[in-house]
Design a protein around this nucleic acid. Structure first.
Lengths: 156, 156
DNA sequence: AATGAAAAGTAATTCCA
DNA sequence: TGGAATTACTTTTCATT
């Protein structure tokens, strides 16, 4: 019993195909999944409407655009502070690429990317300046083994 | 002095435009950045060749395809084990979406996504079965505030 | 929902500056 | 390296099943 699944096996195949190459034509995708061009078009349109596909995009290698440093910053709140007050402030920081509220010793976990390790200090100062943030602990990434992999869905 | 930057300000604008909508036509992007269709085409082609753009893709909402649970799993190696031996094994696990070698108490940090919280147990067993893995600590994601944001580059 | 075919729009190619 | 024009392809729409 899995909730929220809004796709069937054909949709999964389409998502996998477009995840590998978002510019493949509907005709080509259709040949792969056994559907006409128009049918693929219709399904993609509906998946966009339902929010299954958030957007078409590109995968960019961070190092090639000067983002050479990555760290995970765990954030603990003050007693009264709520994640929902702090999260919007963290979203404003361009170095914070990803934010999750988490269970455990810390309340939030941020993925931070900067040009250089030395830039983390300034980001931490910005984070600590947000009302409700009590303390942070940073885990420095030495090497990203893999990330941003094309989506792989079972049954696709 | 920033190393590895392979893009100029116009490339940055192109990457930002395609990061927001990977299907915008080259003509449209060209109008935005002040270049002809062919010039944009040429620059995109070169960025693909240089590996700046890894691929065209789509952003999919994990919940809509049944991936409702996320956790970060920190992994510690045995004394003699190397990340480069363990990483390929973790890549084989479809639930492991992202893997970084990190500094600190643990050696690797994996982002794991499964249909349900209960599925984490099986993934942890698979991870612990990899030779060289000594122990793991999991941080459960309660809510993803944001992730998968369109790329924003300074000067774009 | 899916198909096939026509119309509209876009991209790749070629060549010129 | 960038722009213009041609050719080829892809998307989109629509009538039909």
């Amino acid at each position: 019993m899995q909730a929220n699944i809004q796709t069937d096996a054909i949709d999964a195949k389409i998502l996998t195909a477009l995840g590998e190459d978002g510019r493949r034509s509907y005709a080509e995708v259709g040949a792969d999944v056994g559907l006409s061009t128009a049918a693929v078009h219709e399904r993609v349109k509906k998946m966009l409407e339902r929010g299954v596909i958030r957007r078409f995009s590109i995968s960019v290698d961070p190092h090639t655009v000067g983002l050479n440093f990555t760290a995970f910053v765990a954030i603990r709140n003050d007693g009264g502070a709520h994640c929902r007050d702090i999260a919007p402030r963290l979203r404003e920081l361009p170095s914070v690429q990803e934010l999750h509220s988490v269970a455990g010793e810390y309340d939030l976990l941020a993925k931070v990317r900067t040009p250089h390790a030395r830039d983390l200090e300034a980001v931490l100062l910005q984070i600590k300046a947000i009302p409700g943030v009590a303390r942070t602990t940073s885990t420095v990434v030495l090497n990203t083994e893999f990330e941003d992999q094309p989506l792989r869905l079972p049954g696709a």
